[in-house]
Design a protein around this nucleic acid. Sequence first.
DNA 1: CTGTTAGCGCCTTCAT
DNA 2: ATGAAGGCGCTAACAG
Lengths: 325, 325
Amino acid sequence: MARLADGSVATTSRDLNGGTQRPAIELGQLLTYLPSAAAQGAARGHTNVVGLIVHDVSDPYFSSIAAGVTGAADEQDMIVTLADTRRRPEREAKYLASLRQLRCRAVILAGSRSTDQASEARLQREIASFIGDGGRVAMISQQLPGVDTVLVENSAGARDLARDLFDLGHRSFVVLAGPASLRTSRDRVSGFLQGLADRGLRLDPRHVIHADFTRDGGFAAAMRWRTSGIEATCLFAANDVMAVGAMAALRQFGRSVPDDVSIAGFDDIIPLHDISPAMTTVHIPLETLGTEAMGLVLAPHGGLTPQVRRIRCTVRLRESTRRIP
Amino acid sequence: MARLADGSVATTSRDLNGGTQRPAIELGQLLTYLPSAAAQGAARGHTNVVGLIVHDVSDPYFSSIAAGVTGAADEQDMIVTLADTRRRPEREAKYLASLRQLRCRAVILAGSRSTDQASEARLQREIASFIGDGGRVAMISQQLPGVDTVLVENSAGARDLARDLFDLGHRSFVVLAGPASLRTSRDRVSGFLQGLADRGLRLDPRHVIHADFTRDGGFAAAMRWRTSGIEATCLFAANDVMAVGAMAALRQFGRSVPDDVSIAGFDDIIPLHDISPAMTTVHIPLETLGTEAMGLVLAPHGGLTPQVRRIRCTVRLRESTRRIP
DNA sequence: CTGTTAGCGCCTTCAT
DNA sequence: ATGAAGGCGCTAACAG
């Protein structure tokens, strides 16, 4: 194409790629010409695309991770393609297949693993194929055997939170948990129970109410708590969006936070930083999750032992929880 | 590749593509084989990728739009690649170039146009090249000459809001505006002023305070208002995240909402649906913006006249604004 | 319907 | 340093 300008083809390709834009003629053409990434990919056998699979982009948890990923990608001149499973675990494998077809250099899977055997098995196979084709993959959240992981210490964070709430004087809790099928929710719940146990308190299993891992789930769980007749001075929601849904429900049936009941969440998502009362939660450096994941998949191959990067969660005590005399 | 299974090449390509998986042998291979999208793109001359360029994914405004786009893309078996400018307008052209190189079928540009002449001009050129190569492009927000647009009626929405606030009894306003360089902010501000003018009220230009179009911008603007000594019964923030930042500032210097001062925002972003007091705002169907944009770029070419799809904004009066006796 | 033959647009040895 | 040739993995227009 641009041979009209110079004369040869290989040469043109070279110094177009080599950064040394020599013939001024090319510079002129540059205004509109760009090599086809598709053709380059076909010829080279790989591209500079990295895939990101999330459960729900519109959830601030995932959009912050996405921001971390796009930021890191930009610095490496990589392009990120986004897939949103809409919280249907079985979609992950499907999207991974699409990304494999794209011959992405790497894929980042953000979000809790589920306990659906069929989906997870199919995902495992897709991952194996992807890696077999020379691609890199990183998980964000829980570890999957054999793949690099940015591991969020959900359990430890929830344990610390439970202890702090206990030390604030709370003795009766209700846990607004996500679906039992989500590892993230399970880890947080069990960590929380462990923290209470550390202080000698055993929580009745009926005090754990399961619902969707969303705002509406939190609302519904709080409603179910209300009709359950279970007493509690403190509610722990397994994530912030559930907590905010629960707060809405509490408001609706006239319980004030934190005067009537304290509440705590998990994640420390940004849009909630300014609500009132400020939400007690467990902070996760969400953007960092994304950049770390990019770091893993872009790093030179780590050999046979999968890399694991642990991310600590830190308790943020705020107004939505109060001291019990 | 898979010719080992059958014998021919074209045949394999055909019924792999044609859905009629004939030879059982292939079905066996299918477990791991997938045609390379890169090579397909090279051969066909186009791909099933659509690009999405946003100002900031972690902003709920954009993440909701992204959700709409990914949802629509999924239905059409398209793949979306995401680029985040981090609110630097000059990045748009750069990313558009990357996407052009990818030979995307289409690109969606979400977010306010700026008034930076240089960036906009460069963007215009990129768009022209992109379209010249046979790609489709759609804007979300304001119209750009010659390109399909999902036009948000910011001005009308702000005008309606102003009238409603006036009718609530408010007579003194302060506008917390975004940067003067952002069309979206300008449109909302001018619409708001127009609405007041419709009721016979003229707002002193000093009552318009400019800041970043972010939470921190809203916080800063509210702080500047405080020290300005200007009196007002109602604050209008040009978007919700600014409004929430302003509310944080108000809380910090002990002004209660809505008792001391009413406040209104714009966008009706989801994470704010449950805050207290509930925020008066102007609703935009954000996900719809994304799906409509996909509709535009996937529709058969609209001829020479660019398509424009207008999206209405509707006022949502809530607790953060009160009636003035 | 199937197999053959050209490309698609680029990159990469390999000589020169 | 530069040009020629071969190939990347697939599709499409053409014959059989």
